[in-house]
Structure formats: C-alpha cells, structure tokens
Amino acid sequence: MYGTLARTSILGRSVMRNFIRNGSHGGVPGENLPFDMSNRYKLTALFIVYIGSGISAPFLITRHQLLKK
C-alpha cells in the first residue's frame, strides 16, 4: 500500500515540477495571451473589429443572398 502511495506522490511532484519549469510565465497577468495588452486603445479597436465581424456576418450574408438575382 505504501509503495503505490509513494509512487503516486513522486509522480505528482515530478509532473508539477515540469509544469512549473515549462509552463509558468512568472505570474505576470496577460503574459500568456496571444495579443498585446499594453496599448488599450489598440486592444479596444481589435475587440470591436473581432466582435463586430462576428455579429455582422450573418446580416451581410443574408443581404447578399437577398440581392442576388
């Protein structure tokens, strides 16, 4: 019983050690995001374009289909 518990504990420690070594970014908020958060006006503009394109796409597609001959 103690052998299985010890192996599980060692495995858990090695997994966490590798996660901290390879996956940790130092705890800086936003460092692991795929976009830059330093310029908030650029970030706002990009979010408006991204969200706006998703919301407007069905309406533009419907308009295109209705205007086709």
Rank of each mutant, 00 (worst) to 15 (best):
Y2G: 15
L60N: 11
M37G: 00
F47I: 05
T44C: 06
L66S: 05
Q65P: 00
L67D: 11
R40E: 11
H25E: 13
G52K: 09
R63D: 05
I10H: 12
V15P: 01
V28L: 12
I10Q: 14
S9E: 09
S56L: 14
S14N: 12
S53K: 14
V15H: 01
T44Q: 06
P58C: 00
D36C: 04
H64M: 08
T62G: 04
F35C: 01
A6P: 02
F59K: 02
I10L: 15
V28M: 09
M37K: 00
M1E: 04
I61L: 15
T4Y: 12
S9A: 14
Y41L: 15
T8A: 05
K69N: 11
T8N: 04
L66D: 03
T4D: 12
F59D: 00
G52L: 11
A57I: 09
R21N: 01
L11M: 07
S56Y: 06
V28G: 07
L43G: 00
G23I: 07
G30C: 02
M37V: 02
K69A: 10
N32H: 10
G52R: 13
L33P: 00
N39K: 05
G54H: 09
G12W: 05
P34K: 07
N22F: 09
F19I: 08
A6F: 07
K42L: 15
L46W: 06
T62E: 03
A6M: 06
R17P: 01
L67H: 12
M16R: 09
A45Q: 13
S38C: 11
L67K: 13
I61R: 11
G54Q: 13
L43N: 00
S56G: 08
S14K: 12
T8I: 03
T62R: 07
G54Y: 09
T62C: 05
S9L: 10
I51H: 02
G30D: 01
I61N: 10
G27A: 01
I10S: 14
A57C: 15
K69H: 11
S56E: 05
I10P: 03
F35L: 04
L46Q: 06
L67S: 15
R21Y: 00
K68A: 14
F19Q: 08
G27K: 02
I61T: 15
P34M: 10
A45E: 12
L46T: 05
G12H: 01
G3L: 02
I48K: 08
Y41I: 15
Y50A: 01
I61Y: 13
L11A: 11
R40P: 04
P58H: 05
G26K: 04
R7T: 02
N32V: 14
G27T: 01
L60D: 13
R21T: 01
N39C: 04
